[in-house]
Amino acid sequence: MFQLTGEGLIELNVNGETRKALVRPADTLLFALRERLGLTGAKPGCENGDCGACTVLVDGWPIKSCLMLAVEAVGREIQTVEGLNGAPIQKAFVDKFAFQCGYCTSGFIMNCQGLINIHPDASDEVMQEWLQSNICRCTSYQEITEAIKSVLITENT
């Protein structure tokens, strides 16, 4: 039985590497990534699961890292925006001007990447369902829609 009864070292598999992190059982994955592993791409926007700025992939699925304890992630594969290497969705965000201040961008991109991995041919409806988990305050979402649609396989392409 895995257990952590006080502040202690855990091993996290992040972006293909095994990293050790000193956490309390009550620390969130977001905290461990940012404060212990220096992976600040995931952002705190509400720490309540409402905004999606902290989204990372866990075993391939988008997860709001503010709503996951770091200990829960032990034994799972975590991917953060720092683990993407020139993914098409990153270029699409650049080309479509799909961000302004950029603070929500990491979270949006990771959610998009999850969708691209799991449902590369997602319909507009499914795409919206997924991306409604994130808030962008600068853009109108029209640009983000264009970016993700340029990467998804649609019937027209």
Binding site: F2, Q3, G6, P25, A26, T28, V71
Partner: peptide, 17 residues
């Protein structure tokens, strides 16, 4: 960020739980 401290257990069987 959760100020409270607690312990964490992850059992694998109903009986252990």
């Amino acid at each position: 960020m959760i100020p409270l401290n607690f312990e964490y257990y992850r059992p694998e069987t109903l009986a252990d739980t």
